[in-house]
Design a protein around this nucleic acid. Structure first.
Lengths: 184, 184
DNA sequence: ACCTGTGAAAAAATTCACAGCG
DNA sequence: CGCTGTGAATTTTTTCACAGGT
């Protein structure tokens, strides 16, 4: 498959595809293009997807429940090994392959299981505390669904997913698309 | 509040804050900074959040259910007025303020209700069809949680949220942070 | 004195375009 | 001939730094 084909699929330019791949190595063959299977394998390795990642979820509400059982996570090697909630009523409930545990057990559990990824699906008010617990539990990366910025020490990576902001972006796009003579 | 304060809160530089705001107008006062309430109102208006957006959700699985009842959506003026699923077993179930309806009723429902935003929370295999239905229903913007690219006509905006890719990004960040002499 | 708004400068990302290999 | 990999050119984004208003 050529960089043109890949670009088409990804909504990019072929030069973009080639430049980006060239950061990591020379994966193509001049005159032929890229071997899709090989490239797939190489990219999985670069992304660190050639291993299983042990994850814990904080927050067993609707979003936390959905994420815990999200099939795309498991299929990419992200295994949810524990779910935690501060609400005693949630604790003990079966969720995916595990049961919901009390938030107080998070640190010890994460350490024992050597979990390296934490997913925060709590209300904003609990996000900071959740992050602290995850960090004390020895987690290396946090995916934060709460609309809260997090301070983390060196060596811990954070990504924010703000679902409301995604809709706000759509709102802006729709509103802007409506403006008639705004192209000047 | 000064651009410095705003930058601190948002994890940006003050110049960034001022430049970005200056695209839309002069909202600050020299020597004083920005009035937070005024700025909030102006930005809400720019983003189109000074109105109620009627949304329909396609897919009443775990993710669709979580999104339908996601409090941050309602609080930003995004109201879920309908949820649709192709599985007859899901139909009729109460979800948030509405019941789950058969997918076949989507187009007519969206038109009647004048819904302008569609949220796709189906498996990848159903995403394309869902988008077509939404478009035929007169929707103006689509938030797509399925890992599928969508072709949409002029005038329809799309945003993709790929939860697995967020975790893959974390995986890469963690993996990369581990490499010892990779700073050269 | 403080802080915005903005040109100018610097840095980063993207595109161009082509030498060179298969 | 086709297509990669990559320097060079271009465009975009970010940062700098300061004139000017409060």
């Amino acid at each position: 498959m050529s960089s043109d084909d890949l670009a088409e699929l990804g909504g990019l330019t072929s030069a973009q595809v080639r430049k980006d791949l060239s950061v990591f190595g020379n994966f193509g063959v001049r005159g032929r293009g890229y071997n899709v299977d090989d490239l797939h394998g190489v990219l999985r390795k670069i992304l660190g997807l050639d291993q299983t990642w042990l994850c814990v979820v904080v927050g067993a509400g609707r979003l936390g429940s959905a994420l815990t059982s999200y099939p795309e996570f498991a299929s990419q090697g992200f295994h949810i090994v524990g779910v935690f909630d501060s609400d005693p009523k949630q604790c003990g409930r079966q969720l995916g392959a595990t049961i919901v545990r009390p938030i107080g057990e998070l640190e010890e559990f994460a350490r024992k299981e050597s979990a390296s990824v934490g997913i925060i699906a709590t209300p904003a008010s609990a996000a900071r505390e959740s992050a602290d617990r995850l960090i004390r539990g020895g987690i290396r990366g946090i995916l934060n669904f709460a609309p809260t910025s997090l301070d983390v020490p060196e060596g811990v990576s954070v990504r924010h997913v703000n679902l409301a902001i995604e809709l706000e972006g759509l709102s802006f796009a729709i509103t802007t698309a409506d403006l008639p003579g705004e192209l000047a």
